[in-house]
Simulated assay, not measured.
Amino acid sequence: MDATDRLDVIDTCTRMAWYADRRDWDRLTEVFADKVTLDYTSLNGGEPVTLTPAQITDGWRAGLGVYDATQHLVGNHLVTADGDSAVCTATFQATHLKSDGSRWTLGGTYRFDLARTGAGWRITGVVMTAVWSDGER
């Protein structure tokens, strides 16, 4: 993997958080492959799910919509690649604010699986591992 690919992988993962926080739902769909496996079981229980970008966006619009603002900070990216596949692991801190001043902050790690497509790198899987939280969800 060359430096350009590495930066493109990191940029794709960063744009996921950026577009979600900006509520830019149309652009958010662009970072995902046609089918994406999401694993948020460390937070919500249950089983991982495979969804389309539109289904992800609809779910996040509803889930994040209860907050007046969110900020997902993603950093410490580690990228490995094998041909047209890549894995990016990163730490995150996500703050969720309501107008009444209540705040819920969550920290942990992401594992992004990505595939190189004709349109660039696209996320095919996300595993979010919650490590800590503060405040009331």
Rank of each mutant, 00 (worst) to 15 (best):
G118P: 06
M128A: 13
L114S: 04
W18T: 15
Y19W: 09
G118H: 09
Q93C: 14
V126C: 08
E136K: 12
E47I: 04
L7V: 13
T29Q: 13
S102P: 10
T105Y: 03
H72V: 14
W25D: 01
Y19S: 10
I10P: 02
G120D: 05
V79K: 04
L73I: 15
Y19A: 13
V131S: 10
V79Y: 05
W121Q: 02
M128N: 10
V49N: 08
T95R: 08
R27E: 14
Q55W: 03
V126T: 06
R6C: 08
V79G: 00
M1S: 10
R22M: 06
R27S: 14
P48I: 07
A17H: 01
L106P: 03
T70M: 01
S42H: 12
R116H: 09
A90E: 00
D68L: 04
T14N: 02
A3G: 06
D58N: 12
D24P: 10
F112N: 05
W25T: 01
V127P: 02
G45I: 01
G101C: 09
T109P: 11
T70C: 04
Y67Q: 03
L43S: 15
A94C: 12
P53F: 09
D100F: 02
R122C: 07
R116M: 10
A17D: 09
R23L: 01
T80D: 15
L114K: 01
S99A: 15
V74Y: 03
Q71W: 03
R61Q: 14
A69S: 08
D82T: 09
A62H: 09
T37N: 07
T109W: 02
G108L: 05
H72I: 13
D2F: 00
K98I: 12
I56Y: 05
V9T: 06
G125H: 00
T52N: 07
D84S: 12
W132T: 04
R27P: 04
Q71K: 02
W121G: 05
A33T: 12
Y67P: 01
T91G: 15
A90Q: 01
R61G: 04
G59C: 05
A81I: 06
G107V: 10
L114Q: 06
N76E: 11
T95E: 05
G125V: 09
R15P: 02
T12K: 04
D84I: 05
Q55I: 06
E30G: 07
C13S: 08
A115F: 09
T50L: 11
M1R: 11
Q55V: 02
W18F: 14
E136A: 13
L97F: 01
L51D: 13
T52S: 14
T89N: 02
I123P: 04
G45M: 03
Q55T: 07
A86Y: 06
L97N: 11
S133R: 02
D34Y: 09
T4N: 11
G118M: 03
D39W: 05
A119I: 06
R6M: 08
L78A: 10
T105Q: 14
D58Y: 06
T52R: 04
F32K: 02
L7T: 14
T50N: 12
S85T: 15
T37D: 00
T89A: 07
S133V: 05
E30C: 08
K98Y: 04
I56S: 05
R111N: 07
A62Q: 13
T50V: 12
D5L: 03
R122D: 04
T12S: 07
D82H: 12
K35A: 15
R122N: 03
L28R: 00
V9F: 06
P53M: 11
Y110N: 01
P53E: 10
T52W: 00
I10T: 08
D39F: 00
